[in-house]
Design a protein around this nucleic acid. Sequence first.
DNA 1: CGCGCTCTGTGCGCTAGCGCGCAGACGGAC
DNA 2: GTCCGTCTGCGCGCTAGCGCACAGAGCGCG
Lengths: 247, 247
Amino acid sequence: MLLAECETVDLACADVLYDSGERLSHVYFPVRSFISLIMPVDACSSLEVGLVGDEGMLGVPLVLGVDVSPLRAVVQGAGSALRMEAATFGRALGRSDPLRRELARYVFVHLHQLAQTAACTRFHVVEARLARWLLMTQDRAHSSTFHVTQEFLAQMLGVRRVGVTKAAGSLQRRNLICYRRGDVTVIDRHGLKAASCGCYKADRRSYDRILGPAPWATGACLPRASAMSSPGWTATDDAAISAKETG
Amino acid sequence: MLLAECETVDLACADVLYDSGERLSHVYFPVRSFISLIMPVDACSSLEVGLVGDEGMLGVPLVLGVDVSPLRAVVQGAGSALRMEAATFGRALGRSDPLRRELARYVFVHLHQLAQTAACTRFHVVEARLARWLLMTQDRAHSSTFHVTQEFLAQMLGVRRVGVTKAAGSLQRRNLICYRRGDVTVIDRHGLKAASCGCYKADRRSYDRILGPAPWATGACLPRASAMSSPGWTATDDAAISAKETG
DNA sequence: CGCGCTCTGTGCGCTAGCGCGCAGACGGAC
DNA sequence: GTCCGTCTGCGCGCTAGCGCACAGAGCGCG
């Protein structure tokens, strides 16, 4: 029902869907794309505080009845997404109690992730944070290979590029990833988890607990999050990834 | 209407209203007390990610339909608060659309504050963060003097006690505050703002924009936030503080 | 009055990460 | 093949904050 009022759009890498302080014109439901939520702090520093893929939605403030975003939304993985006018979304929200309830739960997960990120950013070393970031991205890219430059990563983690170079080099030497000119491949997902801080697992646990099986954990259509996620992703990759999740 | 279903409780300093992962039995509306929201990361480190006084409420997850809290809530300023059973609160929420809308806006502000804190914690030096913290606390204590040890502050800011000692010493030498065995007095609020990072002002702007005049900005009963705040606080201090806010 | 607890201040060696600048490596465009 | 832009790797000096340990200062309590 919700999908009927959406239009499909293709998002290109580095597109800015909205900037900090801007009005939200649409909500987005990524299908194969995924998007970074970035908190700018001054002209040259910023920090990623959230990552949205087909497990979530972009436009949390609209769920809360506010039409400006404190965060910048930057497309990090190109691909398709469904989107809906803010006003249409507001009406849909008003009509459907279950939708409102489901999205409220998603807001909670987002909130939890924010708090987790705040603490993680404060206490954990770059290498562990990088490992966490790679795992999160892999989940949303539904692929163990994706494109991301160290410069971009540095912006996300709020560190210097050199810091990323060192951390990535270390992970590569330990045969956990392979990094070649912007193309990362996760080789040893299990090892990467061990190298990451507990924050990755904490995020996942929170999501699964509140919203049930996520796109990365099941091959079937999501029973509870169906309103938020979208059909169209292939189950094969996810299942392959999930099979390794036992660690 | 909401107040009728609340009971008044007295909160003592260092009371833990709920711990991370615990079920939320009540929501709280601080009257003269204020409460720190803390994200524990491991046994010995934690980070304050929110502060709730009479301008807000404790129990955001319940607004979102989730009954566990990812955060620990510790009473930081002793005093009275109104509280309400989680179930009763849920019913009230279901009955009143305006209440739900108002609280959703508060959740948004909380969310914004979380993101702000994440970035602040990453980029700003201890001294600036301390200044921000003191200003936030002064707002909620409705007094320029309050009790807080450096040890506690260190926990909140996620740094060593020594770091706080140095930062507080610096602020004191600059005649912005007076620190004597756990009793802090803000002497020069304006100067303290200058010494703090922009995050304090950003928080305030966000609150005022979304929820309108807060208890710290007006002597009248809040027109929009009345469901969340409570009568009983004296306007004099706030007015006195507000008078200096022009900076 | 003196004991003991709590809170603050300091010193020292260490590390992670910063700012800057530069060199090499890869790869697409012409 | 050559050129040039992009991406990665490294060196160097520096700072903020860490871990640890200890000294003094205020204050309540017996």
